[in-house]
Nucleic acid binder design. Structure first.
Length: 109
DNA sequence: CCAATGACTACAA
DNA sequence: GTTGTAGCCATTG
């Protein structure tokens, strides 16, 4: 598959997320030149969750909420992974989100 | 091409 | 502050 550049763009950005850092769908969307396609980022990440190279657990919505945790194997796997990276989670929300937030570099040809 | 879907986001009540 | 509605756009049938 991977017949769409869009998905690969998302993967490329998510792979660049460093340890202990997180980002939002909108930020990724913007970095790949599709700021209005935040929904597509999540859509792509759904497919990305099946990939090992793409740490989809480091991607949350703009509120820092683990909206996509349900798409992982378990109901708390995503939170466990984040907590394993020294990221505090409470009520499915990342604490000090701004502090852990990582702004991906803007995509350029 | 049309309709439905979705891990979003912004705004209104 | 919480809940609902609308706009958004790429993928899929």
């Amino acid at each position: 598959m991977a017949s769409s550049i869009f998905f690969e763009r998302v993967y490329a950005v998510v792979r660049q997320i460093p340890y202990g850092r997180v980002t939002s769908y909108g930020a990724i969307a913007k970095s790949i030149g599709a700021a209005k396609s935040a929904r597509m980022v999540g859509y792509a990440l759904n497919n990305a969750s099946a990939l090992e190279d793409v740490p989809a657990h480091r991607v949350v919505n703009r509120k820092g909420m683990l909206t996509g945790k349900h798409h992982f194997s378990g109901t708390n796997l995503m939170q466990q992974l984040l907590e394993n990276e020294e990221i505090s989670i409470e009520n499915n929300c990342i604490q000090n989100f701004e502090k852990h937030f990582w702004q991906p570099p803007l995509y350029q040809d």
